[in-house]
Design a binder for these strands. Structure first.
Lengths: 198, 198
DNA sequence: TGCAATTTATGACTTAAATCATAATGATAC
DNA sequence: GTATCATTATGATTTAAGTCATAAATTGCA
């Protein structure tokens, strides 16, 4: 996350996107650095059978889609708003100018990439080969410990449907529903007040 | 990858490790930046049932384990040599000094993290929910396109056993063996000269 | 060269998650 | 406040991957 006042000095613009607006699509070339002022964005792609895979969901203050800015590759996924959102955009050129002139911000960005890589490692190990109950439990745990902290407020208007959880974990809705039910019965999961995890 | 002559100016040392030596362990604090001079290193962890998960395998010229250097967290996995390897180590302090004094190298590191994040995204989407045959095929493809390019030579002394492939993809050995067999029969995989994919 | 260890191979059986179908509940809009 | 849509729920069935057991082939080491 880069302080807004600095971004604005580099001709950043804030645009409002309606719910379900596409910010960029898989295989496009990266042109902007994106940072969420308010709202939420999911990054997703679809595999050959048309099944959605959600790479991640980002909330206010978070940036996303940086890798293709740094290396010359196409976006590996698309970015779509989950609710009406204000998004800060800054041009690629200006972004690099900013990094050059603000080494401490460059370090921040590096740290945030490092953090994402770290979580991907954790998630990869949890997801791969674990039984579904474990995946769901760990995922919810991850949400509570990470997202909750970074976005501050977790009972946010955008919450995960069981379908979304399934899409992130590579499971079927029914499986996620059944797993959550049984976890509740076992007392492993406290309250799951429909879609909103507290 | 940071040029060796620069690293040596910052008191980097090159150490030789025997096969199966542990460079660092899960949950340890990061003290060094590591870069492979020669050899190969795998990063792995074990889940509760004792099943190994391989986060990645790194070859000469590649660095690994940076995220915990940048953010204050413990290693999410251990690093173990797959063959006798020469590894370049540089102290955390010196590493940051180097980044400060060489912004272009800082950018290189950021780019390499971005690249790893990008591949993790690709792999996550491929792995999650795809059928095993697909995972294996895509993994081998990824090896051919990425590892082959970065390490130059692919019919390298370190190759993947079916067990390792299974551990990376979260499958069982038998499944990987069966899948590879059937892919060979279908002509989807050319020559698999035992352990070495061409 | 020969022997032990590791890796690959293969069959039989079990099981858990996917699939399919259909219903109930909760949210949203008019 | 009712109708429509989305989400959650649940049962029956199928299927593919896991498990177990055991053998064959390779590798590597003495």
């Amino acid at each position: 996350m880069i302080p807004q006042e600095i971004l604005l000095k580099y001709n950043a613009t804030i645009k409002t996107f309606e719910k379900d607006a596409t910010l960029f699509s898989e295989n496009e070339t990266a042109r902007y650095y994106y940072q969420i002022v308010s709202g939420a964005v999911k990054m997703n792609n679809y595999n050959e059978d048309g099944k959605e895979f959600i790479q991640g969901i980002f909330y206010k203050q978070q940036s996303f889609g940086e890798p293709p800015l740094f290396i010359d590759i196409k976006y590996p996924a698309s970015a779509v708003t989950l609710v009406k959102s204000d998004i800060l955009l800054i041009d690629r050129q200006a972004f690099f100018q900013l990094l050059k002139e603000h080494p401490e911000i460059h370090l921040n960005i590096t740290q945030s990439l490092a953090k994402r890589l770290y979580y991907k490692a954790i998630i990869a190990s949890e997801i791969s080969s674990q039984e579904p109950a474990h995946r769901v439990l760990r995922f919810i745990d991850y949400l509570k410990n990470d997202v909750a902290k970074t976005s501050g407020d977790f009972t946010f208007k955008v919450d995960y449907t069981r379908q979304q959880i399934a899409d992130i974990l590579g499971l079927r809705v029914e499986t996620v529903i059944r797993v959550i039910k049984s976890l509740e019965k076992q007392g492993e999961l406290k309250i799951i007040k429909r879609k909103v995890y507290r």
